[in-house]
Simulated scan of single mutants.
Amino acid sequence: MDGPLLGPDERLGTAIRTSAIPAGPAEFFADLGNMTVALPVLALTLAYVTWRTRHWLAAVTAIVTMALVPALVAPLQSWLARPGPPPMAPETGFYPSGHTATAAVAYGLCVLLLREAHRARAAAYGCVVVNAAVGLGLVRQGYHWPVDVIGSWCLAALLLYCAAYAISRSTRRSSSGTPSC
């Protein structure tokens, strides 16, 4: 692998891995990107918001969006075959970060769904902080390079933008008298 971002990415990743950030909290936040954590949080949010609003199309949109994460990340990781940081090297398939994408999309969808139900702005700020901590934790623990995390945030932003559009259209339709799913 080569390119203009490789040197700065490796220097920043090494600086974060060798920093004074405590390993315990870093591992905790890195684990928030696991599907075994993020998917139940999303499922509970889906159940609550669907029960409260009766907007089934928003739930379907969220499920499809979340299903797109592994469907997009796994082929990209295989195709790009980027090696991981020193603890993981020479293994490949680290770009984009699946854990980062899972966390960003799952928790981002929770915010979108709660926004429609409650207009909760604090949840959006919390989502940004949690996802920043997940990314930092993944780099600190040596699971990913910083660019792996940033690439996943870009992918998540695209998916969440599309989901937000679809969810807002579905709730607008159902509130205007048009039957919803």
Results as ranks from 00 to 15, higher is better:
residue 41 V to T: 13
residue 44 L to F: 15
residue 4 P to Y: 13
residue 163 A to R: 09
residue 116 E to F: 12
residue 49 V to D: 03
residue 72 L to G: 02
residue 107 Y to W: 13
residue 106 A to S: 09
residue 147 V to F: 12
residue 142 G to W: 10
residue 14 T to K: 08
residue 135 G to L: 03
residue 157 A to G: 04
residue 58 A to G: 04
residue 45 T to K: 08
residue 123 A to H: 03
residue 9 D to A: 02
residue 121 R to P: 04
residue 181 C to T: 11
residue 173 R to H: 03
residue 181 C to S: 08
residue 54 R to A: 07
residue 80 L to C: 07
residue 76 L to N: 12
residue 125 Y to N: 13
residue 26 A to Q: 08
residue 129 V to R: 01
residue 51 W to R: 10
residue 2 D to S: 15
residue 57 L to E: 15
residue 114 L to G: 02
residue 52 R to M: 09
residue 139 V to H: 01
residue 166 A to Y: 04
residue 54 R to C: 04
residue 149 V to Y: 00
residue 159 L to M: 10
residue 103 A to R: 04
residue 139 V to N: 00
residue 172 R to D: 11
residue 104 A to L: 04
residue 136 L to Q: 05
residue 25 P to S: 05
residue 176 S to Y: 02
residue 6 L to C: 15
residue 21 I to Y: 03
residue 156 A to M: 05
residue 119 R to N: 15
residue 23 A to M: 14
residue 81 A to S: 13
residue 155 L to P: 00
residue 131 N to M: 00
residue 5 L to V: 13
residue 178 T to D: 12
residue 133 A to K: 03
residue 162 C to M: 06
residue 14 T to P: 09
residue 104 A to W: 02
residue 77 Q to H: 12
residue 19 S to V: 04
residue 16 I to Q: 02
residue 56 W to K: 06
residue 31 D to C: 00
residue 65 T to Q: 10
residue 8 P to Q: 03
residue 85 P to G: 09
residue 152 S to I: 08
residue 160 L to M: 08
residue 2 D to V: 15
residue 12 L to S: 07
residue 21 I to S: 04
residue 48 Y to I: 15
residue 112 L to G: 09
residue 165 Y to M: 02
residue 146 P to Q: 04
residue 104 A to V: 07
residue 86 P to W: 05
residue 67 A to L: 15
residue 103 A to C: 00
residue 90 P to D: 10
residue 18 T to M: 09
residue 1 M to S: 14
residue 134 V to P: 03
residue 176 S to D: 11
residue 164 A to M: 08
residue 46 L to K: 13
residue 178 T to L: 10
residue 50 T to W: 15
residue 142 G to S: 07
residue 69 V to R: 13
residue 135 G to D: 02
residue 132 A to V: 14
residue 40 P to E: 06
residue 15 A to Y: 07
residue 169 R to S: 01
residue 30 A to D: 05
residue 154 C to P: 07
residue 56 W to A: 12
residue 65 T to F: 15
residue 143 Y to I: 05
residue 42 L to G: 02
residue 95 Y to N: 11
residue 19 S to P: 10
residue 30 A to Y: 00
residue 77 Q to I: 13
residue 1 M to P: 14
residue 73 V to P: 12
residue 68 L to W: 14
residue 30 A to Q: 01
residue 76 L to W: 14
residue 50 T to K: 11
residue 93 G to H: 01
residue 22 P to L: 03
residue 41 V to E: 11
residue 94 F to D: 02
residue 64 V to T: 11
residue 137 G to C: 01
residue 98 G to E: 01
residue 16 I to P: 00
residue 71 A to S: 14
residue 87 P to C: 13
residue 103 A to I: 02
residue 73 V to L: 11
residue 169 R to Y: 11
residue 50 T to D: 09
residue 117 A to C: 10
residue 171 T to Y: 14
residue 71 A to G: 15
residue 126 G to C: 15
residue 14 T to A: 14
residue 133 A to M: 12
residue 180 S to R: 08
residue 46 L to D: 04
residue 144 H to E: 01
residue 105 V to R: 05
residue 102 T to E: 09
residue 103 A to V: 04
residue 165 Y to K: 05
residue 138 L to Y: 03
residue 62 A to V: 14
residue 153 W to Y: 09
residue 74 A to M: 08
residue 82 R to H: 05
residue 105 V to P: 01
residue 150 I to P: 00
residue 181 C to F: 08
residue 152 S to W: 10
residue 88 M to K: 01
residue 8 P to K: 00
residue 111 V to A: 12
residue 110 C to K: 08
residue 97 S to Y: 03
residue 106 A to I: 09
residue 126 G to A: 15
residue 95 Y to F: 15
residue 62 A to T: 11
residue 175 S to R: 10
